[in-house]
């Protein structure tokens, strides 16, 4: 474990917590893409499937973190699609998730480190995570604005994989560890946030709201 990966995981936890708090406190999921949250839930379940297969006692933080990610993302989907369904902005959350899932699944079958079920699921989860935020960014571009709390959520969510890139540089240099598939997908994922990062740093930090087109 290194400082970049530690802060990356903390940033990821923060993002999940910020979104849960926003929906729970405001009792509304306006401005939140339910599709992105569904895709994240699929990512966690397919990536941490080992938790369900050979359940090992919760002997380390990693197992606990995996369970937190899975349960928090499923609970977020429950809040969006059931509890606060009336506030779900289905009209603007209109990006076709199939256009993200099918290519990720196809690519996972073509480019992977080992052609076995667990590895293909892990690879699918990595590819899907890289594009899972697109419905959320699409929704913001359709509504033309983002609530400040949602901007903080997006900043934490984007920072997590950006920090993981630093972690991969660190591990390459000190541990000669390379996980090419995760690195390439992580770079693509972070690039997708660049536009938002620019708006966040030039606007939200100064107390303004993000309004599109900028």
């Amino acid at each position: 474990m290194n400082i970049f990966r530690l802060f990356g995981d903390l940033s990821h936890l923060a993002a999940i917590a910020i979104l849960l708090l926003k929906i729970w406190k405001t009792r509304s999921c306006a401005g939140v893409s339910g599709k992105t949250q569904l895709l994240f839930a699929v990512c966690f379940i397919t990536r941490y499937i080992d938790l369900f297969l050979h359940f090992v006692s919760l002997y380390n933080t990693e197992k606990v973190m995996k369970l937190i990610y899975i349960s928090a993302s499923v609970f977020t989907c429950y809040l969006i699609f059931f509890k606060f369904k009336a506030t779900y902005d289905g009209n603007h959350d209109s990006m076709r998730a199939e256009f993200l899932i099918v290519p990720a699944a196809g690519l996972a079958c073509l480019i992977n480190t080992k052609f076995d079920a667990i590895e293909i699921l892990w690879t699918f989860s990595i590819y899907l995570e890289a594009v899972a935020i697109l419905p959320q960014l699409f929704l913001i571009s359709k509504t033309g604005e983002a609530e400040t709390i949602t901007s903080h959520y997006l900043f934490a969510q984007g920072s997590y994989r950006a920090l993981y890139i630093l972690n991969w540089i660190y591990r390459y240099h000190y541990e000669s560890h390379v996980d090419t598939i995760a690195i390439v997908a992580g770079v693509v994922q972070t690039i997708l946030y660049c536009d938002f990062f620019y708006l966040y740093i030039t606007k939200v930090v100064k107390g303004q709201k993000i309004v599109l087109p900028a």
Binding site: K66, E119, H177
Partner: peptide, 10 residues
């Protein structure tokens, strides 16, 4: 060194 395909990150 991790054996092939083992991923030790979240």
């Amino acid at each position: 060194k991790l054996h092939e395909g083992q991923h030790d990150e979240l």
